[in-house]
Design a protein around this nucleic acid. Structure first.
Lengths: 346, 346
DNA sequence: TAAAACAACGCAAACGTTTTCGTGTTTATA
DNA sequence: TATAAACACGAAAACGTTTGCGTTGTTTTA
């Protein structure tokens, strides 16, 4: 690659100093009109662009915000990035995305890569492995220096910073409540292992809804999926309990869609024999047969809010106390829970 | 945010020069063991990390590669990014992602943001608007300086650089051929408008397959979707032609899934009355009923190859002539085209 | 005519590093 | 004891920019 032209090059060309060139290009009146025009014409011809690194170093500001997410091939996370990107751009910031791949080690690596002057602030959703081993020391080295940091979705109370989360308890509650309303008596939940904050919160909402409605919690209807094992085999167990459920609440789209497929394979009709509801992030729920009712998560809004919190923090426009924004979910009712009136009152 | 500690701070603390500190931290034998240990301990305690901007400026290398894509909430593109990210990380590079949002203006803006020293090279998939207005001058200012650049998926012959594409013609050919093999006589294609390179290439493959098999092209079976208008209304027209098709080839997953829904609404059984095949990038095809046969695009591999081309170019390990990698597609056969033997031979 | 004002530019510091090339001191060698 | 070698550190340039202040030389003002 050819060397890009610099102020020094231009200065040498006209036998003037670097500062003269800099001022001329900025249209300063300190420089004579004649010199100004010569320099500007030359710079323009050779497509001069100030070197960003030099500017960032001088201004002590990169106007870049870093984002570290567990996965990128994931509808929810990419939607969040979209929200971050749009808000950041509008405020004059760029976005640098790194993927932790659910690995603690990679997350730590990404921290050291980004938090060394490369970015003005960081937006992070915690990797699964980090949530599991509860080691947050890499965060502490940031918060100690009051480095601008926003956590979203996968958060922890251990870290003191701004946060934005989905109302997962509320989402689980709404979902379970909806199932109760359409007449479900035995609601199974297909969730994650407990250390995944999102899964356990949704389960908490499920328990709250059942308890509020006087329904006893049946532990045999709670299924915790281990990511390491085969998904379908684990979900299939839902149908093998002695007294099978008449509704399933799945904490994400993939679980819900697989449950639907398995149920149909067993000859169950949806929603008559079994109602299914999921949490959605992607497009799958729209195209299954029947389409799946789901709790919508509004990832775009979440990204926008996270970016707003971060940029306010960076620009010292934020209050001293850390903020925690909660994004409420909404229920999108489709045919997997749509039961006709006579069934509800049966 | 508190100021991060610098070499200068440490130097002042111990009354030595900056260079002494720098050497001490690097474990240089020029510095006495006593001084070295004092400095290292101090730096460690205060969590010293070299400022990345300063290093990048000095080394004239950022180890960052920029990626500009039309959309990020898109399974295919996020898969490509994943491939880029993994390969780049492995080679010691970071990835900076920007979204053009299919807009020419935003694409140009992203160029000026990234190609000023912020990144060592750029991987780009062209925005739809840019493809439409055919204005590539922002690319020329890069290629003129031999700036490392790789184009993927949405490319153009106008720009001289390394490229990596899907074998779209081959994919269209395979898809149409498969439909012919299972006995389809009237194959409709649901594609994009012609200026979208990917869509028109897939259509070319479709035409080639039909022609090779002695099937005449029926223009009334070619449907070009306008993104501005309602999708389902446009796809519905497929079923309204006087002599309806017995197979549909859709150039992406969304088109295929919608066609499937509409066909079922009209009482057609899939695949008996109508076979459907799509190009896939996401998970939708797996969960429809029946699951959709599709042409798989291997986005991850594409990202990996693009990153490889770029990094070789950056590190001067590439041949002088620009390369064009073609990634072949593969057919994933599912039930939407699975017809029993007797039907094939009917 | 001397002082003041002004026009047009250069100097140098600052941002934080790394690295080459000194320089002064101590120790070992002949 | 003179000299070389080894040791321990500092000065300065380089990466590319911006900007406050200083320095010329010319022109205006009283």
């Amino acid at each position: 690659m050819k060397q890009r032209i610099t102020l020094k090059n231009i200065a040498k060309e006209f036998g003037v100093s670097i500062s003269t060139v800099s001022k001329a290009l900025k249209g300063s009146h300190e420089i004579s009109e004649e010199m100004r025009e010569k320099i500007q014409a030359y710079a323009n011809y050779y497509n001069y662009k100030p070197n960003n690194l030099a500017l960032q170093l001088r201004n002590q500001k990169t106007s870049v915000i870093g984002v570290i997410i567990p996965e990128i091939v994931h509808h929810f996370f990419s939607t969040v990035i979209d929200g971050i990107e749009q808000y950041a751009n509008q405020k004059g910031y760029n976005v640098m995305v790194c993927v932790s791949n659910e690995s603690y080690e990679k997350e730590v690596l990404n921290f050291s890569l980004l938090a060394n002057g490369s970015v003005d602030g960081l937006i992070v959703s915690i990797a699964r492995e980090t949530q599991k081993n509860q080691n947050f020391s890499h965060f502490e080295s940031l918060t100690k220096d009051e480095f601008p940091l926003v956590l979203f979705d996968r958060i922890t109370d251990e870290i003191k910073c701004d946060k934005v989360i989905i109302d997962d308890i509320g989402g689980g509650y709404k979902a379970a409540n909806h199932l109760l309303e359409i007449g479900a008596k035995r609601i199974a939940i297909v969730t994650t292992e407990d250390y995944v904050s999102v899964g356990s919160l949704r389960k908490a909402g499920y328990i709250k809804a059942l308890t509020n409605n006087g329904v006893a919690i049946d532990e045999s209807l709670i299924f915790k999926i281990d990511d390491k094992l085969d998904l379908r085999t684990q979900i299939a167990k839902v149908f093998d309990v002695p007294n099978p459920p008449d509704a399933i609440l799945a904490v994400n789209e993939i679980y819900a869609a697989n449950a639907l497929i398995l149920a149909k394979e067993r000859g169950l009709s949806i929603p008559e024999d079994l109602a299914i509801i999921g949490f959605t992030s992607g497009l799958i729920s729209e195209f299954t047969s029947p389409p799946l009712t789901c709790v919508e998560q509004h990832g775009f809004l979440m990204g926008k809010q996270a970016a707003e919190l971060l940029i306010n923090r960076i620009e010292n426009k934020a209050p001293n106390a850390f903020q925690k924004e909660v994004i409420s979910t909404s229920l999108k009712i489709r045919n997997s829970t749509l039961i006709s009136e006579k069934n509800i009152t049966k």
